[in-house]
Design a protein around this nucleic acid. Structure first.
Length: 547
RNA sequence: GGUCCCGUAGCUCAGUUGGAUAGAGCACAGGUUUCCUAAACCUGGGGCCAUAGGUUCGAAUCCUAUCGGGAUCACCA
């Protein structure tokens, strides 16, 4: 939008002045409205290179630059050498016309150009229920996937899991113990590192209901049946919880298939061929120290069993082989140590590390009245994501989990979340949407319909111009949120958009001000409605028509 | 002890990648509705940007050290 109108004249002016230094023309939105609508620090950037005063360079640019005076009111120099740009209202009415004509797709982009992206998130093994931390991971992953879709990428949403190994056996033993305790022996010993959660008792109960005492003998065969039962039970719950938050994933990738399909062996062979794997003490080591990392690590234990690194590397390789151009991983901070190893391994296999983006989010703490609520697994009294969804509903959960930057610890304030009032920030956005819908309902009942014959130049009020300004940046914020992997960027933007709308709504009547003006304001309202709806959709939050 | 994240208003957090007088929500004090939803709007108080140095025209932002909170460390995943 701003490119042709602003950047081009600047570029031309610079070349006329024979300034050929490589500089980006950075445009900023000044905080202080007295500094114009847009400003650039180009003169200051050039000052060092040209060894001249910034203000002098700025003056030379202004003496040379040619621009459309219908669209730009004035350019002036301020402060240390900023060039401030002030647009005309005509600029804004034209800009609004442009985005009005885009319609429902406002905010969509084709910059992704059909590039195939795989976003992997949640990826919890089926040994238990989802808690708040998983919820954060799920919402971040789902929203980032949505952002990529809106940016024109082709997105696959993936869930990676492991249904073999120690933890699953542990689950089976835990269920078995509860099964015996409920069935015939209240004192049956519970495994030392077993899963203490109450859900294990539920599983045991369901097991009894379906099988009675058929599985009472402790043998390999029965434990396998119990393990599979537990896996299915947990997966069912996990998927149901995710569904409540409108999260659907396309591919459930089983780690086990990497073994059965020989992918693990392929990777070992390739590492050996490249001479970055070696045997020592009966184990196979990956020579990470040759790749700039501190220590070499074991990838196959002396027992012949791979460590987690190997399947993780094989899995990433497999995703590339499946044809993805970009891999995105969403991890909790507990995975932070494994990332460099896996990335180094993937790189060693010839896949550029710039093709893998890893987003690591910090933990969630649940608080109420300033006090922390424990979510420990040990005690069995864990507060699950389902509990939270029951209590405050999916919109509040999603918004709360997305409204902070992913790299900060997130404090989930249960008291605030429960609040069904104006204190709760999510309602501020939803209310803007509901208000807009109601305006259109009223317009329709008055027989006023939006058509293509809109005189956008009637929009001159300060709050109208301000709302237009806000709307114009919607696509930029989607792109920024996508590139940064930060849903919060979009959440913040939507709050500001809602604020700009509420102020406009307060100061300017939309209906009953004469058909021509009403139509123009309805057009502005329409674009706002679309942006708000699209933004909420990307965040996975419902857009109510009535509140 | 090593690595990573964080430290900004009473609380929870932003800060457009180094720019102009550091922002928002909540909380607190006050005000606005014969009029499209008051879940809204307006006004006000509130800050040594953890601390100490450094880099430069310019630092909350970059570098170094220190302090404090969290995560992590393996032939566990």
């Amino acid at each position: 939008m701003y490119n042709e109108i602003i950047k081009l004249p600047f570029q031309k002016a610079l070349s006329k002045l024979n300034i050929n230094e490589e500089v980006d023309i950075i445009l900023e939105f000044p905080k202080n409205p007295e500094h114009g609508d847009l400003s650039t620090n180009i003169a200051m950037q050039l000052a060092g290179k040209l060894k001249k005063q910034p203000r002098q360079i700025a003056q030379e640019i202004l003496d040379t630059i040619e621009y459309d005076k219908e669209l730009i009111n004035k350019l002036d120099i301020a402060g240390a050498g900023f060039i401030n740009i002030k647009f005309s209202n005509k600029f804004y009415s034209q800009a609004l016309k442009n985005i009005y004509e885009i319609g429902n797709n406002f905010g969509k982009s084709d910059k992704g150009n059909g590039i195939k992206v795989n976003v992997e998130y949640v990826s919890v093994n089926p040994t238990g229920l989802l808690h708040l931390g998983h919820g954060r991971n799920a919402c971040i992953g789902d929203t980032i996937a949505n952002l990529y879709v809106w940016m024109g990428y082709v997105v696959t949403r993936e869930y990676y899991f492991n249904n073999a190994g120690n933890q699953m056996n542990n689950l089976a033993k835990s269920i078995y113990a509860r099964y015996r305790q409920q069935l015939d022996n209240p004192d049956f010993p519970f495994p030392e590192n077993g899963y203490h959660g109450d859900y294990i008792k539920e599983i045991a109960n369901d097991l009894i209901n379906g099988n009675s005492d058929k599985l009472i003998e402790e043998n390999e065969e029965n434990l396998t049946i119990i393990r599979k039962f537990g896996e299915k039970w947990c997966f069912g719950k996990i998927k149901k919880t995710l569904e409540r938050m409108s999260i659907h994933q396309d591919v459930y990738y089983n780690e086990d298939s990497l073994y059965s399909d020989g992918k693990i062996k392929d990777v070992i062979d390739e590492f050996k061929k490249k001479q970055i794997a070696y045997e020592k003490d009966g184990a196979l080591w990956l020579a990470l120290s040759k790749m700039g990392l501190e220590d070499d690590r074991v990838i196959v234990k002396s027992t012949g069993e791979p460590t987690y690194r190997l399947p993780d590397i094989a899995y990433h390789r497999e995703k590339f082989l499946r044809g993805f151009d970009l891999l995105i991983d969403i991890f909790g901070s507990d995975h932070i140590a494994t990332v460099p190893d896996v990335l180094a391994g993937v790189k060693a296999l010839g896949f550029g590390p710039d093709k893998v983006k890893v987003y690591i989010h910090q933990f969630v703490t649940l608080t109420e009245n300033g006090e922390q609520i424990k979510m420990s697994k040990r005690t069995g009294k864990s507060y699950t994501l389902d509990d939270l969804l029951d209590e405050v509903g999916p919109d509040v959960v999603r918004f709360f989990l997305l409204m902070r930057g992913i790299s900060t610890h997130l404090e989930f304030d249960l008291g605030l979340a429960r609040e069904q009032s104006d204190k709760n920030p999510v309602f501020y956005l939803q209310y803007a949407h509901a208000r807009l819908c109601s305006v259109f309902d009223n317009a329709e009942s008055k027989g006023l319909k939006l058509n293509d014959d809109v005189d956008f130049q009637l929009l001159q009020h300060e709050t109208e111009i301000n709302l237009i300004k806000q709307l114009l940046t919607f696509p930029d914020f989607i792109e920024l949120a996508c590139n940064k992997g930060e849903p919060q960027v979009l959440a913040d933007y939507l709050r500001e958009l809602a604020a700009a709308f509420h102020v406009f709504y307060h100061d300017c009547r939309i209906l009953g001000v004469g058909d021509k003006l009403s139509i123009a304001r309805l057009a502005l309202a329409k674009v706002t409605l679309i942006a708000m709806k699209n933004g909420l959709t990307i965040l996975g939050i419902s857009a109510p028509t009535r509140m």
